[in-house]
Amino acid sequence: MRKVEYPRVKPDHAPYRFDDGTIRIGGELYGTAAEIKDARGYVWLALQLMDGTRAAGAVAEELRRTFPELSPAASEGLVGQLLDSGYIEDVRQPVPEELTRDDQERYSRNHDFFRRVDMRPGRSGWQAQAALKCGRVTVLGVGGAGSHAAWALAAAGVGRLHCVDHDVVEVSNLTRQTPYTEDDIGRPKVEALAQRLHAVNSGVSVTVERRKVDTEDALAEVIAGSDVLALCADESRGEYINTLADRVCAAAGIPWVGGGYSGPKITIGVYGPGGPCDGCLAAGEEARRRQGPDPVIGGPGVISASAGICGNWIAYEVMSLITGVAKQPPGYLRGLNLMAPDQLVYVRHPSRDSCEACGTARRPVATVD
């Protein structure tokens, strides 16, 4: 039997049964819900018995008593499959020692969220929160998307944030960069942001650098010691900074998340070891694009809603990487169009063999003996 002392169906995944015996578990949410054919009632009884009051072995024994035709191997196998399904938690699993009682109160809604979406066996939701508390993220660019991303990451409890930007607050920023106020005009963004983030969550360590990052060496310096890079730089050389991120993060072996907006269209890219890089996705899209004039990409048009969605989406993808709840391996671009809700974006292309960041021609990473 699996090492689960007292199994219980997660409250968010409470099962119900249709007239034909089919069990729906996990609610109605695509990605977590499932249906189980159970004409004889074996699974339904097992789920009812998993209420946190009895051990996993006792569940299997009760199954055999109720259904004598079940062999010990069959009953234990059925219980084991349920324990491995992600719908079951162990009521006696201790909260990770990294989390204090204050943490448990502050992050109780985070816990409920992760308990629902983390479908790995034996996960309660607190493991994800502990991973966030131990996480280290560099946020490069704290403008429209970056200021929202940094706020979301701090509020969620990411343990260490390093925010990097060379710019100062301007009056035109205030339409969408919510951490800043009129009193901050002319003030370095990272300085004002650090103050706001501390006010939101004093338990998060926030460090800042006011600097421009436009070389591989500079980027390598600002991500040193980080688990993930949140790339939110919004300058005209966006493609260049993405190329830097591909190369530097590949060499460092850390994933990165980038995002942006083009009018009402918002896209988020997630890249990391083992998956195609941003450059390979861009090359794949270029190869399939109809020949003709280059399309207009980007531009200054943005409102608070599009900046907020972009930044918070970046933060979500960063948290997914840190906690391990991400279901898709890195190497994809996803997005939406605010003007056309049915136009969802999902792009993935294979790595090019010639790519120095993710292909077979990748430059070797230096090692220290």
Rank of each mutant, 00 (worst) to 15 (best):
H148W: 14
G203F: 04
S354Y: 04
A251R: 12
W151Y: 14
K189Q: 05
G125Y: 11
A150R: 07
L219C: 00
V169E: 00
A55S: 15
Q81K: 14
E285F: 01
V164G: 04
N173P: 00
N242S: 09
E286R: 14
A46S: 11
D20L: 10
D118C: 08
A46C: 08
R334T: 14
A60F: 07
E285D: 04
P15H: 01
I297K: 04
Y346C: 01
P179C: 07
R289F: 05
A154H: 08
L70Y: 05
G272P: 02
D84E: 15
G31W: 01
I297R: 13
S354V: 14
Y240V: 04
E61T: 11
D167R: 02
D342N: 06
K37S: 10
V365I: 08
R54L: 08
V200C: 14
T207I: 11
I309G: 09
K37I: 12
P7I: 13
S75D: 11
T267G: 05
A250L: 00
R289K: 10
I268M: 07
H148D: 00
P11D: 15
A224K: 13
M50C: 06
V318S: 06
S85T: 10
S124H: 05
A55V: 08
E89K: 09
K3I: 14
A361I: 06
A357F: 03
E35W: 11
I36Q: 11
A250K: 00
Y42T: 08
R363T: 15
K212H: 05
E35R: 11
E89M: 15
G253E: 02
K133C: 11
D118L: 06
V171R: 12
P68R: 11
R65N: 13
V190E: 06
V368W: 15
L231V: 03
L132R: 11
D90S: 03
F114I: 05
K189F: 01
D165M: 03
A58P: 00
I297L: 09
V228M: 07
S71C: 02
G253H: 01
G157K: 09
A46Y: 05
K265A: 10
D278G: 02
A230F: 04
G253A: 01
T66I: 04
C310Y: 02
V222A: 04
T367V: 14
Q291D: 14
V171A: 12
S71T: 15
V200Q: 15
I241C: 00
V117K: 02
T181F: 13
H349C: 10
R187A: 05
P341I: 12
H349M: 03
P341V: 10
V368D: 13
S172H: 15
W126N: 10
K37F: 11
F67P: 02
Y180N: 05
W126L: 10
G31C: 02
P179L: 08
T207K: 10
P350T: 08
N201Y: 12
S202P: 04
P300Y: 07
S236I: 09
V164W: 07
G26F: 06
A252H: 01
P329H: 06
C358F: 06
E170F: 00
T178W: 10
D102G: 03
K133D: 09
T215W: 05
L231M: 10
